[in-house]
Amino acid sequence: MSYRPTNTPALVLKGLEKHFDKPAVNGLDLTIRGGEFYALLGPNGAGKTTTLRIVAGLLRPDAGSVSVFGVDALADPIAAKRLIAWVPDEPLIYEKLTPFEYLEFVAGLWDIDAATAQVDASEIIDILGLGPHAHERCNGFSKGMRQKVALAGALVHSPRLLILDEPLTGLDAGSSRQVKTVLAERVRTGVTVIMTTHILEVAERMAERIGVIDAGRLIAEGTLDELRHQTGQTANSLEDVFLDLVAEQSAAA
């Protein structure tokens, strides 16, 4: 399935706040365009996962608004969830279901026509190299295999906004390549991808725009070149740029 580019942003966060013992997300404003590959970076505890969990409907913010393709995700969470797929960093899947059964279940949850879902599922299973294990229960699967099953579940209902929290952690080189290929392919069809990662080379190579958050706020945003300009570096890697930005922020705090 492909989506036409629209002027409506895929995601708009305004004044987003979430406090646990201390502020995790602190007045975050963020706009992500439809059909773009966006990498959200930040040091540990910066508020990346909390932000994404709020967007996926897994946490309620203390303040602010969340709009997904123009749908107010706080007022109408069900409508927003129809458009979103969420893959957490530690995917929890059903140990006693096979990948095939898992995909059937996920398609059922999103109320996708069974015949259509099966065709898509077979394709995703093949692309992710899950074919030989499609009818084995997941309880013996490695972390990488589970990650791929969770990703397959996220793709089977053809979401318009795909949110991935550290999707490449624990994957071997081959699996990592498969996942990156799938994500790039989805972006080509108009799907918006938001991904957090600590593997900065991946963000550097795949993301059209990069957002850096620290202490629950967006401290920098743009293409890699724009971020380089912002830090006064012209030829350095994203890693250098990122470390500079975070160091500046710490010094300012």
Binding site: T98, E104, L109, A114, A115, A121, R137, F141
Partner: peptide, 16 residues
């Protein structure tokens, strides 16, 4: 991994 004894061959249409 244990294979499912009753292997599901196709997705079944059902309400949520």
């Amino acid at each position: 991994s244990s294979s499912s004894r009753r292997r599901l061959s196709s997705f079944r249409q059902a309400s949520v």
